[in-house]
Measured scan of single mutants.
Amino acid sequence: KTVKFDGLQFDFDNPEKALKFALEVAKQKGAEVHIHGDEIKIE
């Protein structure tokens, strides 16, 4: 899975870790997590 935000991109082999990371970043930024297939966007 790939996590994208602020023009940055982070690749994870483990989908659970990717989602956990995305949710943590979103919480800190006050943003929402959007999942599109293998891509997780924080907006």
Rank of each mutant, 00 (worst) to 15 (best):
V25L: 13
G37V: 06
P15I: 14
V3C: 07
A22R: 00
K4T: 13
D11W: 15
E24I: 06
E24N: 03
E24H: 06
I35E: 05
L19A: 01
N14F: 05
T2K: 06
K20T: 09
F12H: 01
F21G: 04
G7S: 05
G30M: 05
K41Q: 11
F5R: 00
D13E: 11
V33L: 10
A26N: 01
E32M: 14
N14V: 06
I40M: 04
E24P: 00
I35F: 11
I42K: 02
E16D: 11
D6V: 01
V33P: 03
V3N: 01
I42A: 03
D38Y: 08
T2Y: 08
F10C: 14
G7W: 05
G37F: 09
E39C: 15
E24L: 08
L19Y: 10
V33C: 13
F5N: 01
L23W: 10
G30F: 05
I35T: 04
V33K: 01
Q28H: 10
N14C: 13
D13C: 11
F21Y: 07
I40F: 07
H34R: 09
F12A: 02
T2V: 13
A18I: 00
V3Q: 03
G37Q: 09
E32I: 14
V33Y: 06
F12I: 03
I42D: 04
I40D: 02
K27T: 11
K17W: 10
V25F: 09
E39D: 07
G37H: 07
K4A: 08
E43Q: 11
D11L: 13
P15V: 12
E43Y: 14
K1H: 13
D13S: 08
I35Q: 06
V3T: 01
L19D: 05
A22N: 00
D11V: 14
V3E: 03
E16P: 00
F12Y: 03
L23T: 08
D38P: 06
D13N: 08
T2I: 12
I35M: 10
K41L: 15
P15Y: 14
K17G: 10
E16A: 09
I42P: 03
D38C: 14
Q28E: 12
H36T: 11
I35H: 07
V3G: 03
F5T: 04
F21C: 09
V25H: 00
P15T: 11
D11A: 10
F10P: 01
A22W: 04
A18G: 00
A31V: 08
A22T: 01
F12R: 00
K1C: 15
F10A: 02
I35G: 01
V33W: 04
L8N: 06
A26F: 02
K41A: 11
E39N: 06
I42H: 03
P15M: 14
K29D: 08
P15F: 15
K4H: 12
K4E: 06
D13W: 05
K1S: 13
F21V: 04
T2D: 04
T2W: 06
I40Y: 10
H34Y: 12
F10E: 02
I40A: 02
D11P: 08
Q28S: 11
A18T: 00
K4D: 04
V3L: 02
K41R: 15
V33H: 03
G7V: 04
L19F: 08
H36D: 13
F21T: 04
V33A: 05
I42Q: 02
V3F: 02
K1R: 11
A18K: 00
K4R: 10
A31E: 05
E24C: 15
E39W: 10
I40S: 02
I35S: 05
G7L: 05
G30H: 09
I42R: 00
K4M: 12
I35D: 04
K29V: 14
F10K: 02
L19K: 02
A18N: 01
A31D: 05
A26R: 00
A22Q: 02
K1I: 15
K4N: 07
K1G: 08
K29C: 15
T2Q: 06
A18V: 00
D38W: 08
K20I: 11
K1V: 15
E24Q: 09
E43D: 10
G30R: 05
D38M: 09
N14Y: 03
K17E: 15
D38I: 08
I40C: 09
L8D: 04
V3H: 02
I40P: 02
F10T: 03
L19E: 05
K29N: 12
E39H: 10
L8G: 03
A26K: 00
K29W: 15
F5H: 03
F21I: 03
D11I: 14
G30E: 07
E24V: 04
A26W: 00
N14D: 15
F12G: 02
Q9M: 09
E32N: 12
F10N: 01
E39Q: 09
T2R: 06
G30P: 03
F10R: 00
D11Y: 15
F5L: 06
I35V: 11
K20H: 10
K27H: 10
K4G: 04
P15N: 08
K17N: 12
F12K: 01
K41N: 12
N14H: 07
D6Y: 08
Q9N: 07
Q9R: 10
A31I: 07
V3K: 00
K29Q: 12
L19M: 12
T2S: 08
V33S: 02
L23K: 08
G37L: 07
E43P: 04
D38S: 11
L8M: 12
H36N: 12
V33D: 02
T2G: 02
L8H: 07
E43N: 09
I40T: 03
G37P: 07
L8K: 11
K41T: 15
H34I: 13
K1Q: 10
V25E: 05
F12N: 01
D6N: 11
E43H: 11
V25P: 00
F10I: 08
K29G: 07
D11Q: 13
L19I: 09
H34T: 11
V33I: 13
A31W: 15
H34K: 11
A31Y: 14
P15G: 10
E43A: 10
E32T: 14
K27S: 12
I40E: 01
A31K: 06
K20P: 01
D6E: 10
L23H: 09
K41F: 15
K20A: 14
A31L: 14
F12L: 02
K27M: 12
L23F: 11
A18P: 00
K1P: 11
K20V: 09
V25K: 00
G30T: 01
K20N: 10
D6P: 00
P15K: 06
G37K: 07
E39T: 13
I40H: 02
A22D: 04
K29I: 15
H34G: 05
L8Q: 10
D6H: 07
K17V: 13
L23M: 12
F5C: 15
D11G: 06
V25G: 00
F5K: 02
A18F: 01
G30N: 10
E32L: 13
V25Q: 06
H36W: 11
P15A: 13
E16R: 05
V3M: 00
E43S: 11
L8V: 07
Q28K: 12
L8Y: 09
F12V: 02
E16T: 07
K41D: 06
A26M: 01
K1E: 03
H34W: 12
K41C: 15
F21D: 07
K17P: 03
E39I: 14
V25W: 09
A31R: 06
K41H: 15
E39M: 11
G7A: 04
D38V: 07
G37T: 05
A22Y: 03
Q9V: 13
K20D: 11
A26C: 13
E16F: 08
H36V: 13
A26P: 00
D38T: 11
N14G: 05
E43I: 14
F5D: 03
K1W: 15
D13T: 09
A18L: 01
F5S: 01
G30S: 03
I35P: 02
A22L: 05
A26E: 04
K20E: 13
I42T: 03
V33M: 07
K29A: 12
H36Y: 14
E16V: 09
E24D: 09
D6I: 01
Q28F: 09
K29T: 14
K17C: 12
K4Q: 07
D13F: 05
F5P: 03
P15R: 07
E32F: 14
E43T: 13
Q9K: 11
Q28V: 09
A31F: 11
F12T: 02
D38N: 12
E24W: 13
A18D: 04
L23D: 05
G37E: 08
F10Q: 03
N14K: 04
K41V: 15
Q9I: 13
P15H: 12
Q9S: 13
L8F: 10
D11K: 12
G30K: 06
I35C: 14
L23A: 07
E24S: 07
L23Y: 13
E43R: 10
E32H: 14
Q28R: 11
N14S: 13
I40L: 06
E24A: 10
D13G: 03
G37N: 07
A31G: 13
D11C: 15
A26D: 04
L19V: 01
D11T: 13
D13P: 07
I40R: 00
F12Q: 01
N14L: 06
H34L: 11
D6W: 08
K4V: 12
E43M: 13
